[in-house]
């Protein structure tokens, strides 16, 4: 099967800045693919390269096996949901959604019907006559989604589409987007800087840093098996162990990741001091000091809690200490 999107040694340089640096990437058809990274890591530039708003300095991008080297955005089988939604303020919601169909010359009745169907799909029936300025942020986001989906793209590109929404709405939209993607079977390429969003929605995640992909894999792999200290740190919540500590714990002189929930308090084991504790509801988070290294552990509800200043002993299953590659 051909990949939906394939990057072959793609680079995009802006003067001396290597926004995208030698990226190889393959996104399968029907996949929900997330590009995760801090701002300036090259993830948005990659998205723009797929859409055709920008062209690679070197390398090639293929969509369903077709090289996009000389294909302008208006001839690519992809559509984009923009971060700022980019709805046309002079058109009402229906005409916004029907814009692409109007451009390809569909007649008025057909495109009106298609637009209303698309609005129904994103749970905005009856909103066709309003102006974008009369909608809330979440509604605008849905209109932008409908406007892209009505074109039946082979690949849908989403540039931080949930970034401007408040937390509750964001969580609801995450579920809806995921369901929509399953339902439609379209390949989604989703750019975000929110690791929670990427891990919860995507089938596969690529973590970007300084223009390169540092790790690509399932959310499970990214979370449990970070390959570099950067991934462990950015995806967060894992304890990142420095090489000297890993060595002392019997793991060799490399960085290692240790999940807080993998740490158990026991009678013997590695000694550490409790620095502070925070009540989280289902568990209590302990901040520990192990010979000058900070560690976080989770104590499940109901377990005995040590006091701040106490010395505790730590243990974990051998497989829970995830060793990274040397030099990573």
């Amino acid at each position: 099967m051909k990949a939906a999107v394939e990057f072959s040694r793609v680079a995009r340089h802006f003067g001396a800045v290597r926004a995208v640096d030698d990226v190889d990437l393959s996104i399968a058809e029907g996949e929900f693919f997330a590009m995760l990274g801090p701002s300036g890591s090259g993830k948005t530039t990659c998205l723009r390269l797929i859409a055709g708003f920008d062209r690679p300095t070197s390398g090639d991008i293929a969509i369903f096996g077709q090289s996009m080297g000389n294909v302008p955005p208006y001839r690519r089988p992809v559509n984009t949901v923009f971060q700022d939604y980019a709805l046309f303020p002079h058109l009402n919601v229906r005409d916004n959604v029907a814009y692409g169909l109007m451009i390809v010359g569909q007649n008025k009745k057909a495109r009106r019907q298609a637009a209303d169907e698309a609005l129904e799909l994103v749970a905005l029936p009856g909103f066709g006559d309003r102006k974008p300025s009369q909608l809330s942020g979440g509604q605008r986001q849905r209109v932008a989604l409908a406007r892209a989906l009505v074109m039946k793209p082979k690949v849908l590109l989403l540039d931080e589409p949930l970034g401007a929404l408040d937390l509750k709405l964001r969580e609801a939209m995450q579920d809806e987007l995921k369901n929509l993607q399953r339902h439609l079977g379209i390949t989604f390429v989703f750019v975000t800087h929110d690791q929670g969003e990427a891990l919860s929605m995507a089938d596969r995640v690529a973590v970007f840093n300084e223009g390169r992909i540092v790790q690509a894999g399932t959310p499970h792999d990214i979370y449990y098996r970070p390959e570099t200290p950067f991934v462990a740190d950015f995806v967060g919540s894992s304890n990142l162990l420095q090489p000297d500590l890993t060595e002392r714990l019997g793991g060799g002189r490399v960085h290692a990741a240790l999940r807080p929930e993998a740490i158990r308090l026991t009678e013997q084991g590695h000694a550490a001091q409790v620095v502070s504790q925070a009540f989280l509801g289902t568990a209590t988070r302990l901040t520990l000091d192990m010979d000058g290294h900070r560690l976080t552990a989770l104590v499940p509800k109901g377990d005995a809690l040590p006091a701040v200043g106490d010395t505790v002993h730590l243990e974990w299953a051998p497989g829970d200490l995830h060793l990274m590659k040397a030099g990573a």
């Binding site: 859409a51 302008p72 208006y74 992809v78 984009t80 814009y99 692409g100 451009i103 892209a148």
Partner: peptide
């Protein structure tokens, strides 16, 4: 982004 959106939707 407004102009990009137009191109993205197929407009020359």
């Amino acid at each position: 982004s407004m102009l990009e959106a137009s191109g993205d939707l197929g407009a020359k």
